[in-house]
Design a protein around this nucleic acid. Structure first.
Lengths: 299, 299
DNA sequence: ATGTTAGATTTAGATAATCTATGCCTAGCA
DNA sequence: TGCTAGGCATAGATTATCTAAATCTAACAT
């Protein structure tokens, strides 16, 4: 018997959070990604929790970790607790600023689909303060207090999400470049521009429209769709464009579509509503507006 | 619109915890007590959360704080989240060390009631590792992972707790002192010893047994019952003793009860079982043993 | 009114928690 | 054998958090 506890009654909350993430994801590295820290930080947090509890929490394997029999039972409750924490934080900030809307979106969607439509939203809802966070992957809405998410997802993965628009791809280029393109085969002589994240787009379009076009000499890759788009507008080559993202430039004439044979993509633009934001009238209004906006080419 | 969030998506967990405690208790000072920090620390945590949220979370009053209309709704979920956190931590440590039992008790109960009975527990359950934490007040079992609590409580406050024993008070002293005490009135010439936490005991006993004894010249007060007890054994005066605490010394003869007119107290010794510990067979065994032990004077 | 009190705040400085950077280690795999 | 993924260890830097002590404020009692 010790007369008083040699350690505090509760472990560090941050260590608990790291444990929960690592246990749920089965990997310290993935947990580190979710928490926006380095894997070493997760290792240390877990170690501190193990020291506090006086027990080993994970079985370490070469590729990842798994919970031990003793710790597995604690995970569901722990996950629920942190989910509740996230949702109560969301409730808190929504009550505080009912007209502040936090949107997470793919960087390209944010810049070329959402951005042109934001002024319509602001006109419709006076006093709206919209924050847009660009993210490569869908955030965990149970943890991060976003009100809306705009991501390209496969229908099969998107249960509970609202489909906004079908995406399709086709080549686009500056009008000056288009003059050189009388037939599809002429593309072989051009530079093919594309986004790093959609590296298969050109091949998909070529084969879906009949194939038979040899690879061009030059296929530069850009880490952001916006950079590739800029190059295309400057006449540096032909971009494989997404209808959702190039509508504005087609309308303005900065880009043209020399071969308007659209190839539909499996991924569609889906809208997701954050937990606890569903009943909010302002959010509901935004959702309606975005659904309508999705039907028209661009703002 | 800002292109990416200027602040992290979640506030600091410690700030959230401070907020929850302060909101639930309606006071920064009480929250500080619960969290074992100074009130200034709570103030700072709340300030940091308010800065993060960009809103005022509390209405500050002269005696305490209250939630604003905007923040009140978030509290129940937040409280539930932290309760779940506490309970999952408890689950974790219980699984890890099923024979480690954490008991919280009043300091005097721990030392003079529980301690003499611990060896009986250890004999009954091999491998038992008992930790005893002395606490002046009943811990919040939803937050702190104790398995058992032993406190003196009024029956009206003790719903859900198991009554173990009735407490009663009567004067005790060393045999040498008892020789001077032929009748109750002789007490007026002695030094009256008592514990700081039970300062009303002497007066309660005197009036309940008929009154009529003038205050003695000397009434030293001790911050711990153990100190007063030590003095009594050394013949420094007459202690107003609790049956639950002096049984062992009465048996050994170190103390005697010159006027065995016990006065029952409103508070009884109650046993509480920690959340998630109820189904544990080891805990159940301990509970049974303690209930039986409570029936006999001392070990 | 005036002092008293409970309770929140402010600030500076100290302490502790936490992170990153770096390199190492191990198991699985080609 | 070398490569890769992923966890581990350490040092040092950076943040977060705490305490201590002095204020401040409104309610309450004289």
């Amino acid at each position: 018997m010790s007369a008083s506890s040699p350690r505090p009654n509760m472990p560090h909350l941050n260590a608990l959070r790291a444990f929960e993430a690592a246990a749920r994801l089965g990997s310290f590295s993935l947990a580190a990604e979710e928490l926006y820290v380095t894997p070493a930080a997760v290792t240390q947090q877990i170690k501190s929790l193990e020291a506090w509890a006086g027990m080993v929490l994970f079985e370490r394997h070469a590729q990842g970790v798994t919970l031990t029999d003793a710790t597995r039972d604690a995970l569901p409750t722990l996950t629920e607790a942190f989910d509740l924490l996230g949702s109560s934080v969301h409730t808190l900030v929504r009550k505080a600023r009912p007209r502040a809307i936090k949107i997470a979106a793919l960087p390209s969607i944010a810049q070329f689909w959402l951005s042109p439509r934001l002024s319509a939203l602001r006109d419709a809802v006076p006093g709206l303060e919209i924050s847009v966070t660009a993210r490569e992957t869908l955030p965990n809405l149970k943890r991060e207090p976003f009100d809306l998410c705009l991501f390209l997802e496969k229908s099969s993965d998107a249960s509970g999400a609202i489909p906004l628009a079908q995406d399709e791809i086709f080549p686009v280029c500056a009008p000056s470049v288009a003059q050189r393109l009388a037939k599809r085969a002429d593309l072989a002589a051009e530079t093919w521009l594309n986004d790093e994240n959609w590296s298969g787009d050109w091949d998909r379009w070529v084969s879906a429209t009949g194939g038979g076009i040899p690879q061009p000499a030059s296929r530069p890759v850009f880490s952001l769709f916006g950079l590739a788009l800029e190059e295309a507008i400057n006449g540096a080559g032909v971009l494989i464009g997404h209808r959702l993202l190039v509508g504005k430039h087609l309308q303005s004439g900065a880009l043209v579509a020399p071969f308007p044979d659209p190839v539909p993509l499996v991924r569609q633009l889906f809208l997701r509503i954050g937990l606890g934001a569903g009943e909010d009238p302002v959010i509901a209004e935004i959702v309606n507006l975005l659904s309508r906006e999705a039907a028209v080419p661009a703002a």
